[in-house]
């Protein structure tokens, strides 16, 4: 009996220890709650500190460009007092480097615009057609669509150069546009596809039943339905094309001194120091991007409020 009692007592002790059953007074409970709250606050502060610290690191090179665009020094990191020479040079129509930079900018823009529009049209039509294909053909097309996404850009660039050599054609504006389309078209397709799957197929059929021509049903029923996917495919195409270096370097026209911003900056880098107006140019570009971003956010915010 005695032994059993002892055992029970021991067990109780153990249970108490394991579950830490302690009787708290109200004050003690409050103190614990405050402690818990403080711990959560500290955790949140730590998390936000980390995120903002990373953001500052990410923006350091850009801040460097912006700050050092306001000094006339050519050497990296040298500050020779405040100056706006980089800006006046950039807008000086007689400066050769600035002219080349603006020409490269114009080339970058039209190549991106043209290749993105063509990719968007061809890719959207492709995605719509694929949506109605049989299972085997659809899988084959999906695999083919993945190739340019998975493949290394430089392998595609080399393969296109080989294709044009094989066909006996020199690289030209045509090969450049083709190169950018290869880069961007799969992203149009994979952005349109989910919208097609969400689409209500009976709407298109209904339009046809009610006497719409196929063209009308396609442009007035199907396209508006999948428009968000088309637009995001177009935006990704623009982004990829504007930023591209490798495919541009390989497929750009060899005959003339054709450059986009990427290839122009890379070629000046190879020669040594970059011209100082490039810093002014980058600053303006950055402000332009920030403005576009703010505009887009405001637009999104207003759209979400409407709904």
């Amino acid at each position: 009996m005695n032994k059993q009692n002892l055992n029970v007592n021991e067990n109780n002790d153990l249970l108490l220890k394991k579950n830490k059953v302690v009787n708290y007074t109200a004050d003690e409970t409050n103190a614990l709650l405050v402690k818990k709250e403080n711990r959560a606050k500290r955790k949140k502060f730590g998390a936000l500190f980390f995120v903002w610290f990373m953001l500052i690191l990410l923006y350091l090179p850009i801040v460097y460009l912006v700050v050092y665009s306001f000094t006339d020094a050519k050497v990296v990191g040298q500050w020779t007092g405040f100056g706006v020479k980089s800006y006046t040079l950039l807008f000086n129509p007689k400066n050769k480097d600035s002219l080349k930079l603006w020409e490269a900018t114009w080339n970058t823009i039209w190549v991106a615009a043209l290749s993105s529009v063509l990719s968007t049209i061809l890719g959207t039509l492709g995605a719509v057609g694929m949506h109605f294909l049989g299972k085997k053909l659809k899988t084959a097309m999906n695999v083919a669509t993945q190739i340019p996404i998975v493949n290394a850009e430089i392998v595609m660039a080399l393969s296109l150069v080989i294709l044009f050599v094989f066909l006996g054609l020199p690289t030209s504006a045509f090969s450049l546009i083709i190169g950018h389309m290869v880069l961007t078209i799969p992203f149009v397709v994979i952005n349109v596809q989910p919208k097609l799957e969400q689409m209500d197929p009976s709407l298109y059929e209904a339009a046809l039943d009610l006497g719409a021509t196929r063209k009308d049903a396609f442009f007035k029923v199907m396209i508006p339905d999948i428009l968000p996917g088309i637009l995001s495919g177009f935006m990704i195409s623009l982004t990829l094309s504007l930023d591209d270096y490798v495919i541009t370097e390989f497929t750009k026209p060899t005959s003339s001194n054709f450059n986009t911003i990427s290839t122009y900056v890379q070629s000046t880098l190879a020669k040594g120091n970059i011209p100082i107006q490039l810093k002014a140019f980058s600053t303006i570009l950055f402000l332009f991007i920030v403005a576009a971003m703010i505009g887009y956010s405001v637009y999104n915010y207003k759209q979400s409020k409407k709904i």
Binding site: P61, L65, G77, T239, Y245, V265, I274, L278, F286, M293
Partner: peptide
């Protein structure tokens, strides 16, 4: 956002 700055320019800026 930094992705929208041309990556050759960005790389040069990082180096400097």
């Amino acid at each position: 956002l930094p992705m929208w700055i041309n990556f050759v320019i960005r790389t040069t800026a990082t180096r400097d």
